[in-house]
Design a protein around this nucleic acid. Structure first.
Lengths: 195, 195
DNA sequence: CCATGAATTGATAGTAACTCTCAAAATGTA
DNA sequence: TACATTTTGAGAGTTACTATCAATTCATGG
C-alpha cells in the first residue's frame, strides 16, 4: 500500500529521463542552443509535459535537494558541538556521503550553474532556501529565534564562504573531493578568517 | 573636451528615465503585469531601444554599480587595519554616504530583488561580481593572490553575512539605516560569530 | 474482467521577452 | 554646409512559457 504504484514510478522515471537527456544535450550543443522541443524529442515526450515537471528550463539543471540530507545530518550532530563546528562537520560529511557517479553529475551541473548566466541567475533562490533552512535548524539547536541576528549572520557567512569553494571545485574540474574543499573553507571560517 | 557631450548626457538621461518609469509601473501594476512595451511607451522610446540599454527586463531593476564606490573606499582604508575590519568600515561608510532619496529607491529595488522570483534570480550575478572585485582588492591590499583560499573565504563570508542583512532591511521597511544593520552583522563576523 | 473516476499527457493557440537586420534620424566634425 | 558616426525605430522571427481541452493511461470497486 505504501510502495509506489506504477504511476509514481513512471513519473520519477520521466523526470529522471528529462534531466539526463537535457544534461546530455547541454553538454553536446550548449545550453542556449538546446531547445525545450529538442529535449522533449530526446526524452520522447511532449514539450508541454516538460513544463509539468520543471517550471523553467533552468530548473532542469538547478534542482538540488540535498537540503533534506543536510538538515537531517545537522540534527544528528552532538548538541555540545559549537554551531559553526556542527555546520562544518555536517557539510563535510554530507558531501563525502554522495556516491561517485552522483558527484560527477553534480560537478557537471555546478559547472553549468557557474558558467551559463541564465542558470547562474537561478542559484540565488536555492541558496536563500538553504540559508533559511540552516538558520531554522541552528536556531532550534541553540534555542534561539530563527530571526536572531547572530543565527542569520552565522549561516549567511557559512553559505557565503562556500561560494568560492564551489567555484574552486569546478575550476580544478573536481580534482579534489568537494568534501575536502568545503572542510578547508569552513575551517578557515572557524579559525576567525585569519589573514 | 572631457565634459560629457550632448550625446552622453542624453544617453544617461534616457537610461535614467527607463529605470524611473519601470520602477513606477512595477510598483503600480506589479512586475509581471508590466510589459516592456508599456515601459517603452511611458519612457517615450521604442521597445528596441530599451534592450539597447538593458539586456533583460530584470536588469532594469538589478543594475547596481555601487561597486566602484565600494572599491575606491576600500582602497582608502588605512593599510594597518586588519582586512575584515577594513571591509566592515568600508561597507558602513559607503552605505552611510548614499543620499536619502537614493536610499529610498535602493530600498524599493531591494524589495523587488527579494520578492519577485525572476529578479531575485538575477542577484547571483551581481553578488559574484562584487565578490570577485572585493577579493581582488583585498588580495592586493594584503599582498596575496586573488585566488588565495583565505582571501576568497573571507570575502565570501562577508558577502554571505550581508544577505540576511538586506532581508532584514527590507523586512523592517528601512526603519533603521542600512549602514547600521550592515555594521552590526559584520561586527558579529569580526567577533568570530559568537553564539 | 470490466466500468467508472481520476490523474497524466498531448495538441493547439496565444503571450511576451528577446534577437537580428536595416533604414531613418540625430549628433559630432571638418 | 557636407560628411561620417552614432543612435534610434520598425519589422519580422525565435523561443520560453501559459492556458485550455480533449485523449490517453492508470487505479479501483464490483
Amino acid at each position: 500500500m505504501n510502495s509506489p504504484g506504477l504511476r509514481e514510478r513512471k513519473k520519477a522515471r520521466t523526470r529522471r529521463t528529462i534531466q539526463e537527456q537535457a544534461l546530455r544535450l547541454f553538454a553536446e550543443q550548449g545550453y542556449d542552443a538546446t531547445t525545450i522541443e529538442q529535449i522533449a524529442e530526446a526524452a520522447e515526450i511532449s514539450p508541454s509535459t516538460i513544463f509539468r515537471y520543471f517550471a523553467t528550463k533552468e530548473d532542469i539543471v538547478v534542482q538540488d535537494d540535498y537540503d533534506p540530507l543536510l538538515i537531517s545530518m545537522l540534527a544528528e550532530q552532538p548538541k555540545d558541538k559549537p554551531p559553526l563546528r556542527a555546520l562544518r562537520d555536517t557539510f563535510r560529511e554530507s558531501m563525502a556521503m554522495i556516491p561517485a557517479d552522483e558527484q560527477r553529475e553534480l560537478l557537471a551541473r555546478a559547472r553549468l550553474q557557474l558558467t551559463i548566466p541564465a542558470i547562474r541567475a537561478r542559484v540565488t533562490q536555492n541558496m536563500m532556501d538553504t540559508l533559511g533552512l540552516l538558520a531554522e535548524a541552528i536556531a532550534k539547536r541553540e534555542g534561539r529565534d530563527p530571526a536572531d541576528l547572530a543565527v542569520q549572520t552565522l549561516t549567511g557567512a557559512v553559505v557565503g564562504a562556500l561560494i568560492p569553494t564551489l567555484q574552486r571545485w569546478v575550476q580544478e574540474d573536481g580534482a579534489r573531493p568537494l568534501a575536502e574543499l568545503v572542510d578547508e573553507a569552513l575551517a578557515l571560517l572557524e579559525a576567525g578568517l585569519p589573514i
